[in-house]
Nucleic acid binder design. Structure first.
Length: 142
DNA sequence: ATATTGACCAGTT
DNA sequence: TAACTGGCCAATA
């Protein structure tokens, strides 16, 4: 089967459990293309409706919702995520510590993804634990 | 055909 | 700290 970049993205996003989220960069990393997070965004932007991909479960590295999400923007994104049972902050971000999904090795095998990406992922996690411990939130005024 | 843009990210200045 | 850079590559404002 031909597995284009977009199709692989869809496959992963479909595997995200309800109530959990992944980041663009995380997905790119899983695909073995660490810096293709933009392409992940494009893939989701142009996904056909009938594919039934739960795009709302993908957020940026700070847990921020997509401004260009469909026609409704962040409002639509928030509505769909809340329908999943995910709590959204007032600045349109989610708590990644709480909601980010980290697939197990078995799940990665099931998705037919390169296992080597798991190693990179683990490295990444240890790394970002310190880095992202205090994400800068933008809106200082409510 | 070339240039710019964008649901992004990480490293460097 | 914030601003900039290069990377990714399909779509095209």
């Amino acid at each position: 089967m031909e597995s284009t970049f977009s199709q692989q993205v869809y496959k992963i996003v479909k595997a995200i459990p309800k109530g959990k989220v992944m980041t663009y960069g995380q997905i790119a990393l899983l695909l073995g293309v660490p810096r293709a997070s933009r392409q992940v965004g494009w893939a989701l932007h142009s996904v056909p409706e009938e594919y039934q991909v739960p795009c709302q479960r993908v957020v940026n590295r700070y847990g921020g919702l997509a401004a260009g999400y469909g026609w409704g923007g962040q409002l639509a994104h928030r509505a769909e995520l809340e329908a999943d049972g995910v709590e959204i902050r007032e600045d349109f971000t989610v708590d990644l510590e709480k909601y980010q999904w980290h697939p197990t090795e078995a799940e990665i095998v099931l998705l037919q993804l390169p296992l080597e990406s798991l190693e990179r992922l683990n490295q990444k996690l240890a790394f970002s634990n310190e880095r992202l411990s205090q994400p800068r939130r933008k809106n200082s005024k409510n």
